[in-house]
């Protein structure tokens, strides 16, 4: 199996307000097509870990490999590029640019990447929206759709550059069970059909149980 993401001996400290060892010797691998969930009590360091894995936080010790390449210590610009091309991120809150249309929001990372023509990007974005059954919302303003719809738009945006891995920090935490189910099914389907890797932090036991693998954390450590 191909390894998509690997963390080796990740340690992180918060220096303020007091020195706090938040992540303690984190080691794990995510394979291609694997649907992994992270569970653990509130405050155990799940989000902190996810921010490091997504390259947004660079203040840590240890090594991080993406597609078997060491990315720890890369420049900020390089990491931005990696984030743009290889990592999709879905937040708990629907982070969309309110002034842009749904379609524009989905297209944005691809336009930033700049590898494809406008027409291609638009076509791909419409395709992603169709996969998520929200293509009819394409022209709507991002601020004018419901919470469940926003989350699906955010997922479509995370998919647009065909990344190696999609990470989510409680992406269903804000959704009712129906919408939550919906999102789970979409993830599951994508990991099966497109061999996409998922690493999803969740509090939802039912959600986690249905994933390929559960990583459990406690007090900054992986315990299983």
């Amino acid at each position: 199996m191909n390894t998509v993401l690997e963390a080796k001996h990740i340690n992180k400290y918060f220096k303020k307000p007091v020195l706090f060892h938040v992540l303690k010797d984190i080691n794990f691998k995510i394979d291609k097509g694997e649907f992994t969930s992270i569970m653990g009590k509130s405050g155990c360091g799940k989000s902190t870990l996810l921010y490091i894995l997504s390259t947004m936080d660079t203040d840590y010790e240890g090594e991080l490999y993406l597609d078997n390449k060491l990315i720890t210590g890369d420049s900020k610009d390089k990491l931005s590029y990696i984030r743009n091309k290889n990592i999709g991120f879905v937040f708990q809150f629907h982070y969309l640019l309110a002034e842009f249309s749904v379609l524009e929001n989905v297209m944005l990372p691809a336009k930033k990447l700049g590898e494809k023509s406008f027409q291609e990007i638009e076509h791909n974005a419409m395709h992603k929206l169709k996969i998520l059954n929200i293509d009819y919302l394409a022209k709507k303003k991002a601020s004018q759709i419901s919470g469940g719809e926003k989350q699906r738009v955010a997922i479509a945006r995370a998919l647009i550059n065909n990344p190696s891995i999609i990470m989510g920090d409680e992406p269903t935490g804000n959704l009712d069970s129906h919408n939550s189910d919906n999102v789970f099914n979409i993830f599951k389907q994508l990991s099966h059909e497109q061999n996409l890797s998922f690493l999803i932090v969740t509090h939802d036991e039912d959600f986690a149980k249905r994933t390929d693998r559960i990583i459990t954390m406690e007090d900054g450590r992986i315990i299983s």
Binding site: M56, K76, D77, S80, Y81, I82, K85, F91, Y95, K112
Partner: peptide, 16 residues
Amino acid sequence: MNDIAILKAIGFSGKD
């Protein structure tokens, strides 16, 4: 602020 965070999260650099 939020938009800036989103932009950075989806791969826009500080320079962008």
